[in-house]
Write a protein that binds this DNA or RNA. Structure first.
Ligand SMILES: NC(=O)c1ccc[n+]([C@@H]2O[C@H](COP(=O)([O-])OP(=O)(O)OC[C@H]3O[C@@H](n4cnc5c(N)ncnc54)[C@H](O)[C@@H]3O)[C@@H](O)[C@H]2O)c1
Ligand SMILES: NC(=O)c1ccc[n+]([C@@H]2O[C@H](COP(=O)([O-])OP(=O)(O)OC[C@H]3O[C@@H](n4cnc5c(N)ncnc54)[C@H](O)[C@@H]3O)[C@@H](O)[C@H]2O)c1
Lengths: 235, 235
DNA sequence: GCCACTTTGTGCATCGGTTCACAAAGGTAC
DNA sequence: GTACCTTTGTGAACCGATGCACAAAGTGGC
C-alpha cells in the first residue's frame, strides 16, 4: 500500500481508473484513425463500454483536459493518457517459459504496437534454448540476470509451469524486477513494492460456469433449491 | 442485472466472492493432495493469498460449513465450492479462432482437469480447417450452429482477430450461447443476459507500466512534477 | 461435567468506487 | 455583448466490499 507524505499532491489516481485508461486509449486510437478531431464524454464512454459520468470522473483525475460545450481533443487526450500510463517510453519485456503459451505471446504482434517490446525469451529446457522465435534467440534461464541487465528489461512475463513459477519469480525479483505478469496458476508471494498481475484462464472459466449454472437453474425452475442441504454429509 | 423476486432467499453470492472461490478451490485441492483433512480459515487464507476474515465471510455465503474450534473439512469444502461453481457438471467449450493463441489454448491441459472440456475448434481459414489439434478436427465456422448443438457447447472462447470478434460473437449468441470468454482486444456489445469475460494482455501490461513508472519517478525525485503542464499544446 | 482453548460466523464501521444531477464554463449566433 | 446551447467537472448520496473485533460454538483435557 505504501502511504506517503505528499499523497494529496502526488496525483493519486484510483486503481479502478488506471485499469480503465487503456480502454479509453484504445477507443481514442480508433477514433484518431477514423479522423475524428474531438469527442464528447458520451461518445467516448459508449466506445469504451462505460457510463459517461464515470469516464468524466476518470479523466478528471488526470487534469482538466476537456472543453465544456465541445468535448475532448482526441490527439491531445491520447497524448495525456499515454503519458500518464508511461507509454511515451519504451518498455522492454522478457518472456520466461517458452512453451505453448510463451510462444504464442512471443509471436503476438499486438502489444509491440504500443510501447512494449519483447526483448528476451528465456527457458530452462536445453531443447528449447537456442530456438529462434519471432526474431529472438531463446536464452538459458541461467543467464537471467545478465539478460535483464543487458536488455534493460523492466517487466517480466511468467509463462512457466506452475511448479516453477514461485522459484523463478524469486530470482527475477532478486535481479531487481518489480513488475510481473503471471500466467501460471499459483498465488505468488512477493515482497512489498513488487507488482504482480495475473491472468488466470481457469478462474475466468469457473466464473462463467457459475453464472451459466445460475441461468439454467432458473429455467428449470426453483427445484435446485431443494438440493441446498442434500444428505448433509455425502463425501 | 436482472432483479428478481426471491432475491433474498436466492443465495445471492457477491460477485467479488465468486471471483475468489476458484482460488480457494485451488488451494484446497493442493491440501487434499497433501493429505490434509481439515484446515483453518487462517491457513486457507494464507494459501489463497487473502485475509482470513474475508475468507470466512466468503465461505459464509455458501452456508455454515466450518466447525468452530476445528476449521473446515477439506474434502467437504471442495465439494461444496465445486457444486456452487457448477463444476460438478461437465462443461463443453468451443474455441473459435485457431491461430497462435487458439492453438496454445487447445493444447493446454490445465482446465480439462476441472470440469471443462474442449469440445470443438472452429476457424474461418480453409488452410486451418481440417487440421487435427489436440485430438480434435478444426471445423469451419459455417458449421457453428450445428457444432454447438451437436457437442452441447455452452461456453465459447473467442480467439479471433479483433476485427472479426463482434461479428462472431453476434452469431454465437444468436445460436443460444450466453457465456463468452473473449481474448480479442475489443469491447463486445452484447444483449442483456449474456456474460462476457475478457482477458486482455495489453491492458495488464499497461497497468504494470503505470505503476512501474510511478516507482522509478519516485526514485529520481519529484522532478517529474514539474512536467505536469509541459508546453500546454505540443501535439 | 466443567473449564480453558481454538476457531468460526457476523455486526458494524469504514473505504473505495459508482452514479446522479447540476452549476460552471465555454462556444456560437446574431 | 447578450442569450442560448452544449458539455464538462464535481459535490453528494449511494452501494458493495473490506476488515476489525467479539460473542457463540465447538473441542479436548482432566
Ligand atoms: N497454454 C495455455 O493456453 C495456458 C492457459 C492458461 C494458463 N497457462 C499456464 O501458463 C504456463 C505455461 O503454459 P504452457 O502451456 O506454455 O506450458 P508448457 O509446458 O508448454 O511450457 C512451459 C515452458 O516453461 C519452461 N520452464 C520450465 N521450468 C522453467 C524454469 N524454471 N525456468 C524457465 N523456464 C522453465 C519449460 O521448459 C517449457 O518450455 C503454465 O503455468 C500454464 O498453467 C497456459
Ligand atoms: N497471441 C497472443 O499471445 C495474444 C495475446 C493477447 C491477445 N490476443 C488476441 O487474441 C486473438 C487471437 O490472436 P492470435 O495471435 O491467435 O491471432 P491469429 O491471427 O494467429 O489467429 C486468429 C485466427 O482466427 C481465425 N479467424 C479469423 N476470422 C475468423 C472468423 N470470422 N471466424 C473464425 N475464425 C476466424 C483466423 O483464421 C486465425 O486462424 C487476437 O484478437 C489477438 O489480439 C492474442
Amino acid at each position: 500500500m505504501i502511504r506517503r507524505l505528499s499523497q494529496a499532491r502526488e496525483r493519486g489516481i484510483p486503481e479502478a481508473t488506471v485499469a480503465r485508461l487503456p480502454l479509453y486509449l484504445r477507443a481514442l486510437n480508433g477514433m484518431s484513425e477514423r479522423g475524428l478531431a474531438t469527442v464528447s464524454s458520451e461518445d467516448l464512454a459508449v466506445a469504451a463500454g462505460v457510463n459517461s459520468a464515470k469516464l468524466r470522473k476518470d479523466l478528471s483525475h488526470l487534469g482538466s483536459y476537456g472543453t465544456r460545450g465541445v468535448g475532448y481533443d482526441v490527439e491531445y487526450l491520447i497524448y495525456q493518457i499515454s503519458r500518464e500510463l508511461g507509454l511515451t517510453q519504451d518498455w522492454a519485456i522478457a518472456i520466461i517459459g517458452v512453451g505453448n503459451l510463451g510462444r504464442a505471446l512471443a509471436n503476438y504482434g499486438g502489444f509491440v504496437s504500443r510501447g512494449f517490446r519483447v526483448a528476451a525469451l528465456l527457458d530452462a529446457d536445453p531443447a528449447v534454448v537456442g530456438d529462434r522465435i519471432a526474431g529472438l534467440n531463446v536464452e538459458h534461464i541461467d543467464e537471467l540476470e545478465a539478460v535483464i541487465r543487458r536488455r534493460g528489461v523492466s517487466i517480466v512475463v511468467l509463462a512457466t509451469p506452475a511448479a516453477a513459477a514461485q522459484q523463478v519469480a524469486d530470482r527475477v525479483i532478486a535481479a531487481g524486477i518489480t513488475s510481473i505478469l503471471n500466467f501460471a496458476p499459483v498465488v505468488l508471494s512477493v515482497p512489498e513494492g513488487v507488482d504482480i498481475r495475473k491472468v488466470d484462464l481457469s478462474i475466468e472459466l469457473q466464473i462463467l460456469a457459475f453464472h451459466e449454472q445460475r441461468k439454467t437453474d432458473r429455467m428449470t425452475g426453483g427445484a435446485a433449491m431443494a438440493e441446498e442441504w442434500p444428505e448433509a454429509v455425502d463425501l
